[in-house]
Design a protein around this nucleic acid. Structure first.
Lengths: 164, 164
DNA sequence: CGATAATATATCGTGTACGATATAAAACGG
DNA sequence: CCGTTTTATATCGTACACGATATATTATCG
């Protein structure tokens, strides 16, 4: 039968899972000098692009939950890289902004992408093409479980499947 | 300049990182019925292929550390899916074996790969091609940090690159 | 305007993940 | 045959990561 559907080596998902770990391990020694973990580095990338974003906006960008970001952002604040302040126009929102030290760290981070590129053993165009393909599948997976929240996505037709 | 090297959307590594999360989120509701997490499922895949493997062999296969697997394997044992016994021929090794319940779970797991395939929105050949490419880059990243242990990899020449 | 719903973040419990270190068993050298 | 080294797993501390839930603020509707 199609018995090898349960073979580890044929599984696309394990390839992605193990590649993600391999990537984070490659970043670790580089980020260690900046005092950052990889998820913290991703938050800094988001803030370097546009300073002063709400927690929810960062979460949407990185596809993470507030329960993951809240302690992470507190650590960035504790390191003196960012501040966390309520939005006066909407006290529900918490605006995360870079400190001068947080801004300056961008210069040191500039050395990281070329180093990572060399670790990949591929060229920029090849990586970009592969990135496109991965993002496409990622979004398919994400869409396959759309409509989790009460407000839901507007494009689903599954409500009767929840057996009431 | 090459300023967009620090742009999140151009980063290959974030694509892999976020895709890994998307994949695990897709597995979660399916694995919930089996009472497994995704890493636990991966260990079961390894054991379904060959029963009775040492912790180190499982770790090599999944590219994880013993500090990750030890508590995970204890949970599998606690669920009655596996046993953990010292190898009489080498008391350092801990052999993990499936219980009857662990074997039977494979039948229920057979429904998972087709479901995941449909979540991907792609065909099998397309997924297989992408898998090959991802595995290639993953192994490049893994090789780029070979020689961490004292026994070291025989093929490195980087020491002077660390700016002394 | 007041009850209710929706939104935004925080808290809690569980389960990975890793590096550093500890422990114990085997292999090795003199 | 005993000290040293290597191997194999376990322990510890830190940091994600998520679902479920709590809390506080804003929006909405009657």
């Amino acid at each position: 039968m199609d018995d090898d559907a349960l073979k580890l080596d044929s599984q696309f998902c394990f390839a992605v899972y193990s590649a993600a770990h391999a990537v984070m391990r490659a970043y670790r020694p580089l980020l260690e000098r900046l005092g950052l973990t990889y998820p913290q580095y991703l938050v800094m990338l988001v803030l370097w692009e546009r300073d002063g974003q709400a927690v929810g906006a960062i979460a949407d960008r990185l596809m993470l939950e507030s329960s993951t970001l809240t302690p992470l952002l507190k650590r960035l604040e504790g390191m003196g890289l960012a501040t966390r302040r309520r939005n006066p126009d909407n006290e529900r929102q918490l605006i995360v902004s870079l400190t001068p030290a947080g801004h300056q760290l961008k210069d040191e981070a500039a050395a990281i992408p070329p180093h990572i590129l060399s670790c990949s053993g591929k060229g920029v165009t090849e990586l970009a093409n592969l990135r496109e393909a991965i993002v496409g599948i990622r979004d398919s997976f994400a869409a396959s479980r759309a409509g989790r929240g009460p407000s839901g996505g507007p494009e689903e037709g599954d409500p009767p499947a929840v057996d009431p």
